[in-house]
């Protein structure tokens, strides 16, 4: 049916095409290819680092959320397993420190509850644009999955085996570290825009949001500290945004491991039964 010769021919053809594609793409390589980071939640066995999520949340709360909304995030999510796992009391206090628009409350406002969603910094899209030089800061709820890193052929083929789904955090990390001031001499930077080598078109409305030492992390219970650098902040916030976009990632991957273990064992048993059944049939 499929003899060796055809497989060989197909393989040669496949590699020929791959070679052509690589040759043509390497010619177009610039130095703005995004470096993939190591993420604790990558791969089938990956899980979020709770401390990193808490740090990332701090960056989000103190920096990002001044301009970006995250309307799908509820305060209660922050206490759920697989996330930053703040205590219920912490989340309650955090929510209460925010004012929530509520037409049914006295004066149209009331303190937040754990069941409330994250309040948006601007009432309308127009308000957001007016405050940001005409640019709209995108909602961050699923932002980490709405961005990606384009892999060239044949590299993307391997993603199906490594389950690479961290393109969003990789892009966010790169973007945070991709600002260049001044812009390259040959680049016409529009008024009010900033040059970022990873942003499509390079002219981004968002000024560099992070600087070294900007966010003060508290030391961990064991006294462990992390560097207060843009690189570290952007990794932490990248991880946090990924959790916000995919809050059940940990439990899904854990369930996936159990399901796959079952399926593989079940397949072996099924194969043995099938072999036994067919043993007496010439086929």
């Amino acid at each position: 049916m499929i003899n060796l010769k055809t497989i060989f021919a197909a393989t040669v053809l496949g590699f020929g095409l791959a070679g052509a594609a690589i040759a043509q793409e390497s010619a177009a390589t610039e130095d703005d290819t995004i470096t993939k980071q190591h993420w604790s939640f990558a791969g089938p066995f990956g899980t979020f680092d709770q401390n990193q999520l808490q740090r990332g949340f701090q960056v989000f709360k103190e920096v990002c959320s001044n301009c970006h909304s995250a309307h799908l995030l509820a305060f209660r999510n922050l206490a759920e397993p697989g996330g930053p796992s703040f205590s219920a009391a912490q989340v309650k206090a955090l929510a209460a420190s925010y004012e929530i628009e509520d037409p049914t409350a006295d004066g149209g406002k009331r303190p937040g509850l754990a069941s409330d969603n994250w309040p948006s910094p601007f009432a309308t899209e127009q308000d957001a644009r007016d405050a940001n030089g005409g640019a709209l800061p995108p909602d961050m709820s699923v932002l980490a999955k709405a961005r990606s890193v384009e892999d060239k052929f044949p590299n993307w083929l391997f993603n199906y085996f490594t389950t690479y789904a961290e393109g969003g955090p990789d892009y966010i990390h790169a973007l945070m570290n991709g600002y260049e001031d001044p812009a390259p001499a040959d680049f016409q930077l529009p008024e009010g825009k900033h040059y970022n080598k990873y942003f499509p078109g390079h002219a981004i409305g968002m000024p560099p949001p992070l600087s070294d030492g900007q966010v003060q992390y508290v030391a961990g219970a064991d006294g462990a500290t992390v560097p207060l650098t843009v690189d570290q902040y952007s990794k932490d916030v990248g991880a946090f945004l990924m959790w916000m976009a995919e809050p059940h990632l940990d439990s899904n991957k854990a369930a996936g491991f159990r399901v796959l273990t079952f399926l593989i064992l079940f397949a072996v048993l099924m194969w043995l039964v099938k072999q036994r059944l067919w043993r007496k049939v010439e086929h």
Binding site: P44, A165, N252, K253, G256, V259, A267
Partner: peptide, 21 residues
């Protein structure tokens, strides 16, 4: 087996990032 692999570990791998906008 591959079906579960994708559904659990890489549910968005066949899709496009833009569909999260």
């Amino acid at each position: 087996i591959p079906f579960a692999w994708f559904a659990f570990f890489a549910p968005d791998i066949f899709g496009h990032a833009d569909n999260y906008i």
